[in-house]
Design a protein around this nucleic acid. Structure first.
Lengths: 342, 342
DNA sequence: TATTAACACGAAACCGATTTCGTGCTTTAT
DNA sequence: ATAAAGCACGAAATCGGTTTCGTGTTAATA
């Protein structure tokens, strides 16, 4: 086993000082050509690589960024993560991921763990529980310490920091308008219990689009499922209101399950009922019929978030007069088989 | 902004030495009760938390583990990751993820980046390109340095380290045997180009099961798709051999696409053709018909891998006489709608 | 009263780098 | 010959902790 070699080893072997070795390896003008060549050759030979931790300690920069997401087994977050990771890696940063599992406590613990020097900044989406509790002290503590923070998708107005979101309301509005334009009249919404910021915005967009077209908003057409859906619930609305001719779902899973439910009840998609989901993921592309879906462009969101964070990390502007921005990524409707004019 | 407070600050404020503060905070017997109380109170008040980096440097332990996977937007890896993350977090470790994107070079770069002190050990699945090149020097370098390594799923015999796999051959064997027992006779295999270790093992299992039941292995029934599948290819086999009555696919996506293809060609699943996939993911549960699938128990694999790694990291057994183990996680066949006896 | 032990704390080394500030020696200018 | 410059390098501080070893003071023992 070849243990890692340090500056000290090189210095000892070559009978020079540690400072000389350090300078030589940085090609400093201060060191004579021959000494540099000797040291560099030796370093190459023994494959010397500086210890990241020591450098971090000295620089007070870790080149690590912390990402905290509610769930990793979820296509959207996974996509955002990929955007973050790619951009960060290109810039020489590593990514430490923590999964909050939708739990407030885990979110707090994870942040505290990472905030003590492990990372240069955070990118995160709030857990469901955090949004429910409306308690953001852990975020404020972090920003108070001068650690840059970027929130994406699940954000809050309570915290002052950079944010990346899609215009959920506009996206839902667009989807519903499209259905209306296709001649659909009784448009249902399948959403989550609305402590989730994004869900309620989508609901707003849904309602607004209906109103603009003088279609009454009917509460029976709005189905609120728990975030961890259970199968049976789906039936209620549709049995209650047979004549639904279109459904907007706030995520892919709800949409797929809606389609399945309709099919099992002898309704044809899109002939009888048109369906649009959110989160353009693998399910949308591979379901049968394929699912029309609002693409949230997760990877792009990730890239933007990473860029915002790293820019802030590397800028020397001392805070006080900081400007925080909210980037809005435009959502696009990807039309597939599950929609067609009636 | 409240900058982070250090031992030095506390020492200065309270007019004691840094060593005293350090000991007091660890509740050392060496320090008097009153001094300890004073220091602890002060530390609490100013919310003192030791700097992780400094501790890492001193201990030569980072409490970070590096995970390198080919792709994060892939249900199986995501599942394994969740297992790793949960276990590691419970043990006080953080997880740094790098995505190799199936590229050899990225894998090498990422490993080198992390190997210089950033992590205490690696968990990884080999990239496709690495398996193709059959070049594992980067892995050997890491193990030579005494950094523990655990390989999962995509492993190789060339490297001496702990491993976690499922018995792919047995799993495929089981799936095919089940189809045979159901009365299926012409069983096709949809697989990837077989530089992927796992694919070739599954193919072995497929062939072996056929042989054991005296069913001839027919090459026309084996379809090899590029890893990044393209749609058209799927048609060939099935058009060539209309009478296929069962299909085993080496992943979920191939399976879903097979089902869709069959349906588009007026074949009923499972009535006419029975389909089984690998990777029991979200697609399997939500497709129509739902997909029978070989569950690889990714989360369990992740947990085991994390446990093996952390055990090794925390054991003081100096190497030389190390024992490496390969844990085999049993695959199980989850039967859903896509299979039924003919 | 002299000696020793116990107590409470501080100095300093160390982890592995970077960087500032000196300093001895050679070379050039006066 | 002497002072000033320049070159090549080393000592030491620093980042923020941990830990070993000493040491001055007090209390217990002979």
């Amino acid at each position: 086993m070849k243990r890692k070699i340090t500056l000290k080893h090189i210095a000892r072997e070559l009978d020079v000082s540690i400072s000389t070795v350090s300078k030589a390896l940085k090609n400093s003008e201060e060191i004579s050509r021959e000494t540099k060549e000797k040291i560099q050759a030796f370093a190459k030979l023994y494959n010397y690589k500086p210890n990241n931790i020591a450098i971090s300690l000295k620089n007070k920069k870790t080149k690590n960024i912390g990402v905290i997401i509610p769930d990793i087994v979820h296509h959207f977050f996974t996509t955002v993560f990929r955007g973050i990771e790619k951009y960060a890696n290109d810039k020489g940063y590593n990514v430490i991921v923590c999964v909050s599992d939708e739990s407030f406590d885990k979110e707090v613990i994870n942040m505290e763990m990472l905030a003590n020097g492990s990372i240069d900044g955070f990118i995160m989406a709030l857990s469901a529980e955090t949004q429910l509790k409306n308690d953001f002290n852990h975020l404020k503590q972090v920003t108070d310490q001068g650690i840059p923070l970027v929130l994406f998708d699940r954000v809050t107005d309570e915290v002052n920091c950079d944010k990346v979101v899609i215009d959920d309301q506009a996206a839902a509005h667009m989807a519903v308008s499209k259905m209306i334009a296709d001649g659909r009249k009784r448009i249902a919404l399948v959403t989550t219990e609305n402590y989730l910021n994004v869900s309620s915005k989508r609901e707003d967009g849904y309602k607004q689009a209906l109103k603009e077209h003088n279609i009454p908003v009917r509460d029976e057409l709005i189905l609120r499922l728990p975030y961890q859906y259970e199968d049976e619930k789906l039936s209620e609305v549709f049995f209650a209101t047979q004549e639904v001719d279109a459904v907007l779902c706030v995520n892919e899973i709800f949409a797929i399950r809606t389609i399945r439910f309709l099919q099992d009840n002898q309704l044809q998609v899109p002939t009888d009922v048109s369906v649009i989901g959110f989160t353009d993921g693998i399910l949308s592309r591979l379901s049968n019929p394929t699912l029309s879906s609002v693409a949230q462009h997760g990877e792009e969101m990730g890239t933007i978030a990473a860029k915002m964070l790293i820019d802030k990390v590397e800028s020397d502007v001392e805070e006080g007069d900081e400007q925080y921005h909210t980037e809005v990524v435009e959502a696009t409707l990807i039309e597939r088989e599950s929609t067609r004019s009636s």
